[in-house]
Write a protein that binds this DNA or RNA. Sequence first.
DNA 1: CAATTTTTGTAATCTCCATTACATATTTAT
DNA 2: ATAAATATGTAATGGAGATTACAAAAATTG
Lengths: 223, 223
Amino acid sequence: MGQTKFWYLSTNRLFHDLPEKDKMEIMPMLKETRIGKKEFVFSAGDKAETIYILKEGRIKISRFSEEGRELTIDMLDPGDFFGELVLAGEEERETCAEALEDSYICAISRKNFEDFVSKRPALSFKITKWIGGRLKRIENRFESMIFQDVHSRVMATLQDLGMKYGVPVQDGILITVKLSHQEIANLIGAARETVTLELNSLKDSGEILMEGRKFILPSKRTL
Amino acid sequence: MGQTKFWYLSTNRLFHDLPEKDKMEIMPMLKETRIGKKEFVFSAGDKAETIYILKEGRIKISRFSEEGRELTIDMLDPGDFFGELVLAGEEERETCAEALEDSYICAISRKNFEDFVSKRPALSFKITKWIGGRLKRIENRFESMIFQDVHSRVMATLQDLGMKYGVPVQDGILITVKLSHQEIANLIGAARETVTLELNSLKDSGEILMEGRKFILPSKRTL
DNA sequence: CAATTTTTGTAATCTCCATTACATATTTAT
DNA sequence: ATAAATATGTAATGGAGATTACAAAAATTG
Protein backbone atom coordinates (compact mmCIF):
# COMPACT_ATOMS: atom_id res chain seq x y z
CA MET A 1 0.00 0.00 0.00
CA GLY A 2 2.90 2.35 0.71
CA GLN A 3 4.27 0.92 -2.47
CA THR A 4 1.07 1.67 -4.29
CA LYS A 5 1.13 5.22 -3.09
CA PHE A 6 4.68 5.61 -4.27
CA TRP A 7 3.81 4.26 -7.66
CA TYR A 8 0.93 6.62 -7.75
CA LEU A 9 3.06 9.67 -7.19
CA SER A 10 4.87 8.73 -10.33
CA THR A 11 1.79 9.00 -12.47
CA ASN A 12 0.40 12.13 -10.92
CA ARG A 13 0.61 15.15 -13.16
CA LEU A 14 2.16 17.30 -10.48
CA PHE A 15 4.52 14.92 -8.82
CA HIS A 16 5.71 12.52 -11.46
CA ASP A 17 9.01 14.25 -12.05
CA LEU A 18 9.82 14.97 -8.43
CA PRO A 19 13.13 13.55 -7.26
CA GLU A 20 12.77 10.23 -5.40
CA LYS A 21 13.87 11.97 -2.25
CA ASP A 22 10.99 14.42 -2.43
CA LYS A 23 8.52 11.68 -3.13
CA MET A 24 9.67 9.92 0.00
CA GLU A 25 9.15 13.11 1.92
CA ILE A 26 5.61 13.79 0.79
CA MET A 27 4.42 10.21 0.93
CA PRO A 28 3.77 9.98 4.65
CA MET A 29 1.68 13.12 4.47
CA LEU A 30 -0.78 11.58 2.04
CA LYS A 31 -3.75 9.81 3.54
CA GLU A 32 -5.55 7.44 1.26
CA THR A 33 -9.31 7.04 1.43
CA ARG A 34 -11.90 5.10 -0.45
CA ILE A 35 -14.95 6.95 -1.73
CA GLY A 36 -17.88 4.87 -2.90
CA LYS A 37 -19.86 5.74 -5.99
CA LYS A 38 -22.27 8.63 -5.39
CA GLU A 39 -20.56 9.60 -2.17
CA PHE A 40 -19.30 13.13 -1.71
CA VAL A 41 -15.72 14.00 -0.85
CA PHE A 42 -16.94 17.44 0.15
CA SER A 43 -19.97 19.66 -0.35
CA ALA A 44 -20.54 23.38 -0.70
CA GLY A 45 -20.21 25.05 2.68
CA ASP A 46 -17.76 22.52 4.13
CA LYS A 47 -14.68 23.94 5.74
CA ALA A 48 -11.90 23.83 3.17
CA GLU A 49 -8.55 22.66 4.47
CA THR A 50 -7.48 19.72 2.40
CA ILE A 51 -6.16 19.13 -1.08
CA TYR A 52 -6.93 15.86 -2.80
CA ILE A 53 -5.40 13.79 -5.52
CA LEU A 54 -7.58 11.36 -7.39
CA LYS A 55 -5.80 8.06 -7.51
CA GLU A 56 -8.37 5.80 -9.02
CA GLY A 57 -11.94 6.32 -10.19
CA ARG A 58 -13.77 9.40 -11.39
CA ILE A 59 -14.84 12.51 -9.53
CA LYS A 60 -17.25 15.21 -10.60
CA ILE A 61 -16.93 18.79 -9.37
CA SER A 62 -20.19 20.70 -9.45
CA ARG A 63 -22.33 23.48 -8.08
CA PHE A 64 -25.99 23.40 -7.20
CA SER A 65 -28.64 26.07 -7.34
CA GLU A 66 -31.14 26.51 -4.52
CA GLU A 67 -33.73 24.66 -6.55
CA GLY A 68 -31.35 21.76 -6.93
CA ARG A 69 -30.26 22.34 -10.51
CA GLU A 70 -26.70 21.27 -11.13
CA LEU A 71 -23.82 22.83 -13.01
CA THR A 72 -20.87 20.56 -13.64
CA ILE A 73 -17.60 22.40 -13.28
CA ASP A 74 -15.23 19.59 -14.08
CA MET A 75 -14.80 15.85 -14.42
CA LEU A 76 -11.61 14.45 -12.99
CA ASP A 77 -9.52 11.45 -13.92
CA PRO A 78 -6.81 9.61 -12.04
CA GLY A 79 -3.81 11.86 -11.54
CA ASP A 80 -5.88 15.03 -11.29
CA PHE A 81 -5.94 17.00 -8.13
CA PHE A 82 -8.87 18.87 -6.66
CA GLY A 83 -9.90 21.04 -3.79
CA GLU A 84 -6.90 23.12 -4.90
CA LEU A 85 -8.71 26.36 -4.31
CA VAL A 86 -7.78 26.21 -0.63
CA LEU A 87 -4.40 27.25 -2.02
CA ALA A 88 -6.11 30.35 -3.35
CA GLY A 89 -7.54 31.21 0.02
CA GLU A 90 -10.84 29.34 -0.17
CA GLU A 91 -12.15 28.87 3.34
CA GLU A 92 -15.50 27.27 2.62
CA ARG A 93 -16.05 24.96 -0.33
CA GLU A 94 -18.09 26.56 -3.04
CA THR A 95 -18.35 23.34 -5.00
CA CYS A 96 -19.21 19.70 -4.37
CA ALA A 97 -17.01 16.75 -5.26
CA GLU A 98 -18.89 13.54 -5.96
CA ALA A 99 -17.53 10.15 -6.92
CA LEU A 100 -18.99 8.90 -10.20
CA GLU A 101 -17.65 5.45 -9.46
CA ASP A 102 -15.85 3.80 -6.57
CA SER A 103 -12.70 5.85 -6.17
CA TYR A 104 -9.54 6.16 -4.17
CA ILE A 105 -8.21 9.54 -3.23
CA CYS A 106 -5.18 10.83 -1.38
CA ALA A 107 -5.61 13.75 0.97
CA ILE A 108 -3.02 16.20 2.19
CA SER A 109 -3.55 19.11 4.54
CA ARG A 110 -3.16 22.60 3.22
CA LYS A 111 -0.43 23.35 5.72
CA ASN A 112 1.68 20.34 4.81
CA PHE A 113 1.20 20.93 1.13
CA GLU A 114 2.11 24.59 1.30
CA ASP A 115 5.23 23.88 3.34
CA PHE A 116 6.27 21.23 0.89
CA VAL A 117 5.62 23.38 -2.14
CA SER A 118 7.21 26.53 -0.78
CA LYS A 119 10.56 24.77 -0.83
CA ARG A 120 10.10 23.69 -4.44
CA PRO A 121 9.62 26.51 -6.91
CA ALA A 122 9.24 24.20 -9.87
CA LEU A 123 6.28 22.53 -8.24
CA SER A 124 4.82 25.87 -7.41
CA PHE A 125 4.94 26.75 -11.08
CA LYS A 126 3.11 23.64 -11.97
CA ILE A 127 0.33 24.52 -9.61
CA THR A 128 0.02 27.94 -11.14
CA LYS A 129 -0.18 26.30 -14.53
CA TRP A 130 -2.75 23.84 -13.34
CA ILE A 131 -5.04 26.48 -11.90
CA GLY A 132 -4.43 28.75 -14.87
CA GLY A 133 -5.43 25.92 -17.16
CA ARG A 134 -8.69 25.50 -15.28
CA LEU A 135 -9.27 29.23 -15.52
CA LYS A 136 -8.83 29.16 -19.27
CA ARG A 137 -11.18 26.25 -19.69
CA ILE A 138 -13.89 27.86 -17.59
CA GLU A 139 -13.53 31.13 -19.47
CA ASN A 140 -13.95 29.27 -22.72
CA ARG A 141 -17.07 27.55 -21.50
CA PHE A 142 -18.42 30.83 -20.18
CA GLU A 143 -17.86 32.38 -23.57
CA SER A 144 -19.50 29.52 -25.39
CA MET A 145 -22.42 29.73 -22.95
CA ILE A 146 -22.94 33.35 -23.90
CA PHE A 147 -22.25 33.31 -27.62
CA GLN A 148 -23.45 29.92 -28.74
CA ASP A 149 -26.73 28.04 -28.90
CA VAL A 150 -27.40 24.55 -27.56
CA HIS A 151 -26.47 22.92 -30.85
CA SER A 152 -22.97 24.38 -30.83
CA ARG A 153 -22.51 23.83 -27.12
CA VAL A 154 -23.36 20.14 -27.38
CA MET A 155 -20.98 19.76 -30.31
CA ALA A 156 -18.23 21.67 -28.48
CA THR A 157 -18.69 19.42 -25.45
CA LEU A 158 -18.44 16.27 -27.52
CA GLN A 159 -15.38 17.65 -29.25
CA ASP A 160 -13.77 18.32 -25.86
CA LEU A 161 -14.59 14.81 -24.74
CA GLY A 162 -13.14 13.53 -27.98
CA MET A 163 -9.87 15.29 -27.26
CA LYS A 164 -9.72 13.85 -23.79
CA TYR A 165 -11.22 10.41 -24.10
CA GLY A 166 -11.29 9.77 -27.82
CA VAL A 167 -9.74 6.77 -29.53
CA PRO A 168 -9.62 6.45 -33.32
CA VAL A 169 -11.90 3.82 -34.80
CA GLN A 170 -13.09 2.90 -38.29
CA ASP A 171 -15.42 5.85 -38.83
CA GLY A 172 -13.96 8.52 -36.60
CA ILE A 173 -13.18 9.17 -32.97
CA LEU A 174 -14.93 7.05 -30.37
CA ILE A 175 -15.60 8.73 -27.05
CA THR A 176 -14.78 6.08 -24.50
CA VAL A 177 -16.70 7.48 -21.56
CA LYS A 178 -20.43 7.32 -21.37
CA LEU A 179 -22.33 10.42 -20.35
CA SER A 180 -26.04 10.59 -19.78
CA HIS A 181 -28.01 13.32 -21.48
CA GLN A 182 -28.50 14.83 -18.05
CA GLU A 183 -24.76 15.04 -17.53
CA ILE A 184 -24.27 16.81 -20.84
CA ALA A 185 -27.10 19.16 -19.92
CA ASN A 186 -25.35 19.96 -16.63
CA LEU A 187 -22.17 20.76 -18.50
CA ILE A 188 -23.75 23.21 -20.92
CA GLY A 189 -26.53 24.70 -18.84
CA ALA A 190 -29.45 23.31 -20.80
CA ALA A 191 -32.51 21.19 -20.05
CA ARG A 192 -32.14 17.43 -20.36
CA GLU A 193 -35.02 17.25 -22.86
CA THR A 194 -33.34 19.80 -25.08
CA VAL A 195 -30.13 17.77 -25.07
CA THR A 196 -32.00 14.58 -25.99
CA LEU A 197 -33.63 16.38 -28.90
CA GLU A 198 -30.38 17.93 -30.04
CA LEU A 199 -28.48 14.66 -29.81
CA ASN A 200 -31.06 12.89 -31.91
CA SER A 201 -30.98 15.57 -34.53
CA LEU A 202 -27.18 15.35 -34.60
CA LYS A 203 -27.51 11.61 -35.21
CA ASP A 204 -30.01 12.18 -38.00
CA SER A 205 -27.82 14.72 -39.70
CA GLY A 206 -24.79 12.43 -39.39
CA GLU A 207 -22.85 14.92 -37.31
CA ILE A 208 -22.38 12.18 -34.75
CA LEU A 209 -22.56 8.39 -34.93
CA MET A 210 -23.36 5.91 -32.19
CA GLU A 211 -21.60 2.75 -31.09
CA GLY A 212 -24.02 1.32 -28.59
CA ARG A 213 -24.43 4.09 -26.05
CA LYS A 214 -21.21 5.80 -26.94
CA PHE A 215 -20.61 8.61 -29.37
CA ILE A 216 -18.40 8.68 -32.41
CA LEU A 217 -17.23 11.92 -33.95
CA PRO A 218 -17.10 11.04 -37.64
CA SER A 219 -13.90 11.87 -39.46
CA LYS A 220 -14.82 14.60 -41.88
CA ARG A 221 -15.49 13.44 -45.39
CA THR A 222 -17.24 15.17 -48.25
CA LEU A 223 -20.72 13.76 -48.12
CA MET B 1 10.23 58.31 -13.32
CA GLY B 2 12.36 55.51 -11.88
CA GLN B 3 11.17 56.89 -8.59
CA THR B 4 7.59 56.67 -9.72
CA LYS B 5 8.06 53.10 -10.68
CA PHE B 6 9.54 52.33 -7.29
CA TRP B 7 6.63 53.96 -5.57
CA TYR B 8 4.35 51.98 -7.74
CA LEU B 9 5.81 48.67 -6.71
CA SER B 10 4.84 49.57 -3.21
CA THR B 11 1.17 49.82 -4.04
CA ASN B 12 0.98 46.80 -6.28
CA ARG B 13 -0.87 43.91 -4.77
CA LEU B 14 1.85 41.42 -5.58
CA PHE B 15 4.95 43.41 -4.85
CA HIS B 16 4.14 45.76 -2.05
CA ASP B 17 5.70 43.68 0.67
CA LEU B 18 8.78 42.64 -1.24
CA PRO B 19 12.04 43.58 0.47
CA GLU B 20 13.59 46.78 -0.90
CA LYS B 21 16.41 44.75 -2.34
CA ASP B 22 14.03 42.70 -4.45
CA LYS B 23 12.20 45.77 -5.63
CA MET B 24 15.49 47.20 -6.83
CA GLU B 25 16.13 43.99 -8.69
CA ILE B 26 12.85 43.85 -10.55
CA MET B 27 12.60 47.52 -11.31
CA PRO B 28 14.92 47.63 -14.30
CA MET B 29 12.97 44.79 -15.89
CA LEU B 30 9.74 46.78 -15.93
CA LYS B 31 9.07 48.83 -19.02
CA GLU B 32 6.49 51.54 -18.61
CA THR B 33 4.14 52.40 -21.48
CA ARG B 34 1.28 54.76 -21.96
CA ILE B 35 -1.92 53.38 -23.44
CA GLY B 36 -4.46 55.89 -24.70
CA LYS B 37 -8.16 55.45 -24.08
CA LYS B 38 -9.71 52.86 -26.42
CA GLU B 39 -6.32 51.52 -27.40
CA PHE B 40 -5.60 47.82 -26.99
CA VAL B 41 -2.69 46.46 -25.00
CA PHE B 42 -3.20 43.16 -26.77
CA SER B 43 -5.87 41.38 -28.76
CA ALA B 44 -6.97 37.79 -29.15
CA GLY B 45 -4.51 35.92 -31.31
CA ASP B 46 -1.49 38.02 -30.37
CA LYS B 47 1.57 36.13 -29.28
CA ALA B 48 1.58 36.02 -25.49
CA GLU B 49 4.92 36.69 -23.87
CA THR B 50 4.48 39.57 -21.50
CA ILE B 51 2.90 40.18 -18.13
CA TYR B 52 1.54 43.61 -17.35
CA ILE B 53 0.84 45.61 -14.26
CA LEU B 54 -1.67 48.41 -14.44
CA LYS B 55 -0.16 51.45 -12.86
CA GLU B 56 -2.71 54.10 -13.60
CA GLY B 57 -6.00 54.10 -15.45
CA ARG B 58 -8.50 51.33 -16.14
CA ILE B 59 -8.26 48.30 -18.38
CA LYS B 60 -10.99 45.99 -19.57
CA ILE B 61 -10.34 42.33 -20.38
CA SER B 62 -12.82 40.86 -22.82
CA ARG B 63 -13.59 38.30 -25.45
CA PHE B 64 -15.39 38.80 -28.75
CA SER B 65 -17.60 36.49 -30.73
CA GLU B 66 -17.23 36.22 -34.50
CA GLU B 67 -20.22 38.49 -34.95
CA GLY B 68 -18.55 41.08 -32.76
CA ARG B 69 -20.52 40.56 -29.57
CA GLU B 70 -18.49 41.22 -26.49
CA LEU B 71 -18.12 39.41 -23.17
CA THR B 72 -16.33 41.32 -20.45
CA ILE B 73 -14.11 39.07 -18.40
CA ASP B 74 -12.74 41.59 -15.97
CA MET B 75 -12.24 45.27 -15.22
CA LEU B 76 -8.88 46.17 -13.78
CA ASP B 77 -7.78 48.91 -11.45
CA PRO B 78 -4.35 50.29 -10.61
CA GLY B 79 -2.27 47.64 -8.89
CA ASP B 80 -3.87 44.76 -10.76
CA PHE B 81 -1.85 42.64 -13.07
CA PHE B 82 -2.97 41.08 -16.32
CA GLY B 83 -1.81 38.93 -19.15
CA GLU B 84 -0.89 36.54 -16.33
CA LEU B 85 -2.09 33.52 -18.22
CA VAL B 86 1.24 33.35 -20.03
CA LEU B 87 2.36 31.96 -16.67
CA ALA B 88 -0.15 29.18 -17.19
CA GLY B 89 1.25 28.32 -20.59
CA GLU B 90 -0.86 30.60 -22.74
CA GLU B 91 0.90 31.06 -26.08
CA GLU B 92 -1.67 33.10 -27.95
CA ARG B 93 -3.89 35.62 -26.22
CA GLU B 94 -7.46 34.43 -25.93
CA THR B 95 -8.65 37.78 -24.63
CA CYS B 96 -8.31 41.44 -25.49
CA ALA B 97 -7.11 44.15 -23.10
CA GLU B 98 -8.49 47.60 -23.83
CA ALA B 99 -7.85 50.85 -21.98
CA LEU B 100 -11.08 52.42 -20.74
CA GLU B 101 -9.20 55.63 -20.07
CA ASP B 102 -5.68 56.89 -20.63
CA SER B 103 -3.54 54.45 -18.71
CA TYR B 104 0.00 53.62 -17.76
CA ILE B 105 1.16 50.04 -17.64
CA CYS B 106 4.38 48.28 -16.75
CA ALA B 107 5.44 45.33 -18.84
CA ILE B 108 7.76 42.50 -17.92
CA SER B 109 8.75 39.55 -20.05
CA ARG B 110 7.60 36.12 -19.07
CA LYS B 111 11.17 34.90 -18.85
CA ASN B 112 12.30 37.65 -16.50
CA PHE B 113 9.22 37.32 -14.39
CA GLU B 114 9.49 33.56 -14.05
CA ASP B 115 13.15 33.76 -13.12
CA PHE B 116 12.41 36.38 -10.54
CA VAL B 117 9.48 34.49 -9.07
CA SER B 118 11.14 31.10 -9.02
CA LYS B 119 13.57 32.42 -6.44
CA ARG B 120 10.77 33.77 -4.25
CA PRO B 121 8.29 31.16 -3.06
CA ALA B 122 6.17 33.68 -1.19
CA LEU B 123 5.59 35.61 -4.37
CA SER B 124 4.79 32.44 -6.20
CA PHE B 125 2.09 31.77 -3.66
CA LYS B 126 0.59 35.14 -4.21
CA ILE B 127 0.33 34.49 -7.90
CA THR B 128 -1.42 31.23 -7.27
CA LYS B 129 -3.83 33.07 -5.04
CA TRP B 130 -4.38 35.77 -7.60
CA ILE B 131 -5.20 33.36 -10.38
CA GLY B 132 -7.25 31.21 -8.05
CA GLY B 133 -9.22 34.27 -7.06
CA ARG B 134 -9.99 35.00 -10.69
CA LEU B 135 -11.02 31.40 -11.17
CA LYS B 136 -13.45 31.61 -8.29
CA ARG B 137 -14.97 34.81 -9.56
CA ILE B 138 -15.46 33.46 -13.05
CA GLU B 139 -16.99 30.27 -11.70
CA ASN B 140 -19.43 32.34 -9.70
CA ARG B 141 -20.41 34.37 -12.72
CA PHE B 142 -20.74 31.22 -14.78
CA GLU B 143 -23.05 29.79 -12.17
CA SER B 144 -25.14 32.91 -11.99
CA MET B 145 -25.33 32.95 -15.79
CA ILE B 146 -26.79 29.46 -15.73
CA PHE B 147 -29.06 29.61 -12.71
CA GLN B 148 -30.28 33.19 -12.65
CA ASP B 149 -32.35 35.46 -14.86
CA VAL B 150 -31.40 38.93 -16.06
CA HIS B 151 -32.98 40.60 -13.05
CA SER B 152 -30.79 38.72 -10.59
CA ARG B 153 -27.70 39.01 -12.73
CA VAL B 154 -28.01 42.78 -12.95
CA MET B 155 -28.50 43.01 -9.20
CA ALA B 156 -25.56 40.69 -8.55
CA THR B 157 -23.37 42.81 -10.80
CA LEU B 158 -24.33 46.00 -9.02
CA GLN B 159 -23.70 44.31 -5.70
CA ASP B 160 -20.24 43.28 -6.86
CA LEU B 161 -19.53 46.80 -8.01
CA GLY B 162 -20.77 48.06 -4.68
CA MET B 163 -18.26 45.85 -2.87
CA LYS B 164 -15.43 47.08 -5.02
CA TYR B 165 -16.24 50.70 -5.71
CA GLY B 166 -18.94 51.53 -3.20
CA VAL B 167 -18.79 54.37 -0.71
CA PRO B 168 -21.42 54.86 1.98
CA VAL B 169 -23.71 57.83 1.45
CA GLN B 170 -26.94 59.08 3.03
CA ASP B 171 -29.28 56.47 1.49
CA GLY B 172 -26.98 53.56 0.89
CA ILE B 173 -23.88 52.60 -1.04
CA LEU B 174 -22.90 54.81 -3.96
CA ILE B 175 -21.13 53.07 -6.80
CA THR B 176 -18.38 55.45 -7.77
CA VAL B 177 -17.69 54.16 -11.26
CA LYS B 178 -20.03 54.78 -14.15
CA LEU B 179 -20.93 51.91 -16.39
CA SER B 180 -23.02 52.17 -19.51
CA HIS B 181 -25.94 49.82 -19.97
CA GLN B 182 -23.94 48.21 -22.74
CA GLU B 183 -21.08 47.50 -20.37
CA ILE B 184 -23.40 45.87 -17.87
CA ALA B 185 -24.91 43.85 -20.69
CA ASN B 186 -21.44 42.65 -21.69
CA LEU B 187 -20.79 41.56 -18.14
CA ILE B 188 -23.90 39.45 -17.80
CA GLY B 189 -24.45 38.22 -21.34
CA ALA B 190 -27.67 40.09 -22.04
CA ALA B 191 -28.91 42.53 -24.67
CA ARG B 192 -28.40 46.23 -23.98
CA GLU B 193 -32.13 46.92 -24.37
CA THR B 194 -32.95 44.30 -21.79
CA VAL B 195 -30.54 45.90 -19.33
CA THR B 196 -32.07 49.34 -19.89
CA LEU B 197 -35.51 47.93 -19.21
CA GLU B 198 -34.36 46.02 -16.15
CA LEU B 199 -32.51 48.99 -14.72
CA ASN B 200 -35.57 51.20 -15.08
CA SER B 201 -37.76 48.65 -13.42
CA LEU B 202 -35.23 48.40 -10.56
CA LYS B 203 -35.44 52.17 -10.16
CA ASP B 204 -39.23 52.06 -10.14
CA SER B 205 -39.32 49.33 -7.54
CA GLY B 206 -36.81 51.20 -5.39
CA GLU B 207 -34.27 48.38 -5.53
CA ILE B 208 -31.75 50.91 -6.74
CA LEU B 209 -31.52 54.70 -6.52
CA MET B 210 -29.74 57.13 -8.82
CA GLU B 211 -27.37 59.95 -8.08
CA GLY B 212 -26.99 61.58 -11.46
CA ARG B 213 -25.75 58.77 -13.64
CA LYS B 214 -24.47 56.70 -10.80
CA PHE B 215 -26.19 53.94 -8.91
CA ILE B 216 -26.93 53.74 -5.22
CA LEU B 217 -27.69 50.47 -3.50
CA PRO B 218 -30.16 51.50 -0.86
CA SER B 219 -29.48 50.37 2.67
CA LYS B 220 -32.23 47.91 3.47
CA ARG B 221 -35.10 49.29 5.44
CA THR B 222 -38.55 47.87 5.97
CA LEU B 223 -40.69 49.71 3.42
C1' DC C 1 -35.21 -12.84 -13.86
C1' DA C 2 -38.54 -9.97 -11.81
C1' DA C 3 -38.84 -5.60 -9.96
C1' DT C 4 -37.11 -0.93 -9.41
C1' DT C 5 -34.66 2.74 -10.75
C1' DT C 6 -32.60 5.38 -14.14
C1' DT C 7 -32.41 7.00 -18.68
C1' DT C 8 -34.35 8.34 -23.00
C1' DG C 9 -38.12 9.83 -26.34
C1' DT C 10 -41.75 13.03 -27.73
C1' DA C 11 -45.05 16.70 -27.88
C1' DA C 12 -47.67 20.82 -26.42
C1' DT C 13 -47.34 25.05 -24.16
C1' DC C 14 -45.30 29.00 -22.35
C1' DT C 15 -41.90 32.54 -21.16
C1' DC C 16 -38.03 35.20 -21.07
C1' DC C 17 -35.33 37.73 -23.67
C1' DA C 18 -33.12 38.72 -28.38
C1' DT C 19 -34.07 41.25 -32.34
C1' DT C 20 -35.59 45.00 -34.93
C1' DA C 21 -36.63 49.56 -35.41
C1' DC C 22 -36.69 54.06 -34.16
C1' DA C 23 -36.94 58.37 -31.06
C1' DT C 24 -34.71 61.13 -27.77
C1' DA C 25 -31.33 62.54 -24.69
C1' DT C 26 -26.49 63.26 -23.37
C1' DT C 27 -21.67 63.53 -24.10
C1' DT C 28 -17.72 64.53 -26.77
C1' DA C 29 -15.35 66.65 -30.36
C1' DT C 30 -14.54 70.64 -33.50
C1' DA D 1 -21.76 76.64 -29.62
C1' DT D 2 -22.88 73.37 -32.90
C1' DA D 3 -22.28 69.16 -35.00
C1' DA D 4 -21.39 64.35 -34.55
C1' DA D 5 -21.18 60.48 -31.86
C1' DT D 6 -22.78 57.74 -27.91
C1' DA D 7 -25.97 56.35 -24.74
C1' DT D 8 -30.65 55.63 -23.36
C1' DG D 9 -35.83 54.81 -23.85
C1' DT D 10 -39.67 52.19 -25.71
C1' DA D 11 -42.50 49.00 -28.20
C1' DA D 12 -43.70 45.09 -31.42
C1' DT D 13 -42.44 40.71 -32.95
C1' DG D 14 -40.26 36.34 -32.92
C1' DG D 15 -37.86 32.38 -31.39
C1' DA D 16 -34.90 29.28 -28.73
C1' DG D 17 -35.34 26.66 -25.31
C1' DA D 18 -37.59 25.81 -20.49
C1' DT D 19 -41.38 23.50 -18.48
C1' DT D 20 -44.76 20.09 -18.01
C1' DA D 21 -46.40 15.70 -18.66
C1' DC D 22 -46.12 11.19 -19.91
C1' DA D 23 -44.58 6.73 -22.25
C1' DA D 24 -41.17 3.55 -23.28
C1' DA D 25 -36.71 1.61 -23.01
C1' DA D 26 -32.41 0.25 -20.46
C1' DA D 27 -29.84 -0.67 -16.75
C1' DT D 28 -29.43 -2.03 -11.85
C1' DT D 29 -30.49 -4.57 -7.99
C1' DG D 30 -32.39 -7.91 -4.96
